[in-house]
């Protein structure tokens, strides 16, 4: 930038800068304001993308009771969920001793699926309790 432009950015008086219009001047002059222009309505577009449709999944039929059934306790790997499930296991031992409990840590990082485990539960289990969150 040249000196004149720099000085005018400072807002220095044109006395020193003959012929240079001050930069921080008026905007283009326009006609007088319309009556209450802020009340005029305008139309804008919705910026949202298109979400996928959701396939509803019917929940699995419930068991008549847990007596004599096999319940899988699945740990998804978050801090502390194994310890919590262990307490759940102890609760069943105390209160519903006929329930068989199987503790499983889901393989892989928490965002990954574990198809072999789901297959095992499908074959051997009757119900699942999953712990997530820390």
């Amino acid at each position: 930038m040249n000196r004149r432009k720099l000085l005018s950015l400072l807002g220095m008086s044109p006395v020193l800068l003959t012929g240079n219009p001050a930069q921080a001047g008026q905007t283009k002059h326009a006609a007088a304001p319309a009556a209450d222009p802020g009340a005029v309505k305008i139309t804008t577009v919705n910026p949202k993308g298109t979400p996928p449709s959701i396939q509803l999944i019917p929940m699995a039929p419930r068991l008549d009771s847990l007596d004599g059934k096999t319940v899988y306790l699945v740990d998804t790997g978050f801090h502390g969920s194994d310890a919590l499930l262990h307490q759940v296991e102890l609760w069943f031992n105390r209160n519903m001793p006929s329930v068989t409990l199987v503790f499983k840590r889901k393989a892989g990082p928490y965002a990954q699926d574990d198809p072999p485990l789901w297959k095992e539960i499908k074959e051997k289990g009757n119900a699942v309790i999953m712990a997530t969150g820390h």
Binding site: G38, A39, V40, K41, I42, T43, T44, V45, N46, K48, G49, T50, P51, P52, S53, I54, Q55, L56, I57, P58, M59
Partner: peptide
Amino acid sequence: EKKTGIVSVSVGPPTFTDTAENL
């Protein structure tokens, strides 16, 4: 709880009309 099928998700109408300030 037994319901099945496909539910479409709404994100509202394609445009909105109001004063600039309200919008």
